[in-house]
């Protein structure tokens, strides 16, 4: 995992400079309406510190995906600003912003569009201008980080769904992002793949924003959760507190799966 070693080193040496203290993500007053007039976000404020793991919860249609597309400048807010590691998300910075924000989309078949795993993982860093051995090293360490190194020369459609999702994570890790954003990472995974992915994600020394309505997965991976509903952040609390607050959950169409006890789960994890 040399890829992350360099990250950690740079954090140590830069600790005295300002940039190391910048939050990984800072959104303030972000509002957005689609061209058809439908307003999806009504002034979102969200601060995520370096190394934090945060779950973004919310019912379908709450604006979660819209919010995610603001993080790397695919959508431009009608009002408000987004900063990633201190850098404003704006046209002149887009290449650097897209390096800093690694978005893993929900369907790995959308994410993996190159003929082989190796080429796909190389796509991002190659767009950043990396070539040759440097590029190869990035690909190798990113695939190592998700335990898929031996599949580098396979075609994506020859992999299982869980493997494809892990490769999808590698395709953004190879860009050495500041923040990893996962859209419904647990969807369609069988229990073993789900556990394997959780193990990989908890092992990454990286800021993480996980969009999900899989509450047990949020409890397992993220100590902090925010609820987005009707385009605003309506709750921002430690995950354990939030998941034991049945009223708040019910108000925003979130439910724990039958038989799941967040306190027992927390105890089991410790």
């Amino acid at each position: 995992m040399g890829i992350f070693l360099t990250d950690a080193e740079s954090q140590d040496t830069d600790a005295v400079t300002d940039s190391a203290h910048e939050p990984s993500l800072a959104m303030s007053g972000v509002a957005y309406a689609y061209p058809d007039g439908h307003q999806a976000l009504f002034g979102v404020d969200l601060l995520i510190k370096q190394g934090e793991r945060v779950a973004l919860l919310g019912p379908n249609g709450a604006g979660k995906t819209t919010l995610v597309l603001h993080l790397n400048g695919i959508l431009t807010p009608g009002a408000g600003v987004v900063h990633v590691g201190g850098l404003e998300v704006a046209k002149p910075n887009l290449t650097e912003i897209r390096r800093r924000v690694g978005i893993v989309f929900q369907d790995p078949d959308d994410q993996l569009f190159m003929p082989t795993v190796r080429e796909d993982v190389a796509f991002g860093p190659a767009n950043l201008g990396l070539r040759g051995s440097e590029l190869a090293k990035r690909v190798e360490s990113a695939l190592d980080a998700v335990g898929m190194a031996e599949f580098a020369d396979r075609a994506p459609h020859h992999l299982s769904f869980g493997q494809r999702r892990r490769v999808a994570v590698a395709t953004v890790l190879s860009m050495e992002p500041e923040i990893l954003v996962l859209d419904e990472p647990s969807s369609n995974l069988d229990p073993a793949s789900r556990r394997e992915l959780a193990e990989i994600l908890t092992g990454l020394p990286i800021t993480l924003l996980m969009v999900t309505h899989d509450l047990p997965y949020a409890a397992q991976l993220c100590s902090r959760s925010v609820i987005l509903d009707e385009g605003t952040i309506v709750a921002d609390r430690p995950t354990r507190d939030l998941l034991t607050d049945a009223d708040t959950l019910a108000r925003h169409r979130l439910e724990l799966p039958f038989g799941f006890d967040p306190l027992a789960a927390k105890a089991a994890m410790q």
Binding site: F105, F113, F123, N127
Partner: peptide, 8 residues
């Protein structure tokens, strides 16, 4: 979209 997000 996924391509743009990775600097295409």
């Amino acid at each position: 979209l996924a391509m743009l997000s990775r600097g295409y």
